[in-house]
């Protein structure tokens, strides 16, 4: 699914030219659950942005399903974000004035579904994250975990080929964090949803069969090269 070779992303910061990500090689296959772990400033968020087409590498090649993302225009990237990527954010990024269902529907809008169909699908998605009884609640009326589940439902709205989660549990207490981690793991296990999750939380990282630890823009360790569910289930030591 992803094939990265020599990917470097440099930021100009005054006279310095810092590399947030430096000379990375990475392959991620469809159906994998990959956690990128590292301290803040290690370059993990930058890597996630590159994977989601939100940012472009300075050098190297980054291909998603064989297509180099850097060469795509805004419209093509938008189409990818709509159909291929599902983003989950640390701050949930829900629209505070819209209730849970309307927030999910917002992601279905560009797909041009008819109103009733859209509503039905939004409800099905909320059902999937066990929030159908909270559909009419505003984000402010939901707990952090519930808000993140709405955000996950939104990310899943257009059946993305990969879920890209940026510190999804960073704003949650440890119990809720495990719950959200478990939800993502269940999606991977039960629906073969490819997940790339960025976190600094070792507990969450432990949920994934494959953990890449980043340090100063490079991978320190790659726990496992194959992390598809069947491999994990067969070779559980990975």
């Amino acid at each position: 699914m992803y094939r990265l070779r020599g990917v470097t992303r440099r930021f100009r910061q005054g006279p310095l030219n810092l590399a947030a990500v430096f000379d990375l090689d990475l392959d991620i296959d469809a159906g994998e659950f990959v956690v990128i772990q590292g301290r803040s400033g290690s370059g993990k968020t930058t890597l996630l942005q590159l994977l989601g087409g939100l940012d472009q590498q300075t050098s190297g090649t980054l291909a998603f399903e064989g297509r180099e993302l850097r060469g795509l225009n805004d419209r093509q990237l938008t189409a990818l974000r709509l159909h291929a990527f599902g983003f989950i954010f640390q701050q949930f990024n829900l629209i505070p004035t819209l209730n849970a269902r309307d927030n999910v529907e917002l992601a279905l809008r560009p797909a041009r579904l008819a109103g009733p169909e859209r509503r039905e699908r939004a409800m099905a998605l909320l059902e999937q994250v066990s929030l159908s009884d909270r559909a009419r609640h505003l984000p402010s009326q939901l707990s952090g975990g519930e808000q993140q589940r709405v955000a996950i439902a939104r990310a899943l709205a257009n059946r993305p080929r990969v879920l890209l989660a940026d510190e999804p549990t960073g704003n949650l207490d440890s119990r809720t964090a495990e719950e959200i981690g478990g939800l993502l793991r269940a999606l991977w296990l039960e629906q073969r949803q490819t997940v790339v999750l960025v976190t600094h939380d070792r507990v969450i990282a432990a949920l994934a069969p494959r953990v890449l630890v980043m340090h100063d823009g490079r991978f320190a360790t790659d726990s496992c090269s194959g992390s598809r569910p069947e491999e994990v289930l067969t070779a559980s030591g990975c």
Partner: peptide, 16 residues
């Protein structure tokens, strides 16, 4: 900014 950026991230076109 973040809210509208999120719309872009979840697949809204610039024009939208």
């Amino acid at each position: 900014v973040r809210e509208l950026g999120t719309l872009r991230a979840i697949g809204w076109r610039r024009g939208a």
